[in-house]
Amino acid sequence: MSFPGVDTDFLLAEEEMIAAYHPTNRNLFNLFRNAIIAWKVLRVRNPDLIISTGAGVAIPFFYLGRLFGIKTIYIESLTRIHGLSLTGKLIYPVASHFYVQWPGLARRLRKAVYGGQVL
């Protein structure tokens, strides 16, 4: 799942991609529309694992994933150094695995794990 755009067209040219609605930042209407997509995708495909770096589009997938008993991995953005993003905060309670990219942040959150950076 991603957003249509010049970057995804190029980087995911060889992949199957399902388009989500955007923007998702603080946008309840698109959250609702993406929740409907998430429900359909998860029911039809029944994946073993959901992995996401956010942002807002990830929220329905993680909550529905939890509901359907699917394992989930969330990776917080490298830009979040001292605290989680809104998406991170919302997903924290339901993710099976929760990665952050700064050791200091991992120490402050019981469930968060530092596993290196994308750099």
């Binding site: 991995i73 596993g115 994308v118």
Partner: peptide, 20 residues
């Protein structure tokens, strides 16, 4: 390859790929 990519591959490999 960044360290995080290795971490996630190891996690997925261990817990999921082997059971598929």
């Amino acid at each position: 390859e960044p360290e995080l990519a290795r971490t996630i591959k190891a996690l997925i490999g261990n817990r999921f790929l082997n059971t598929l």
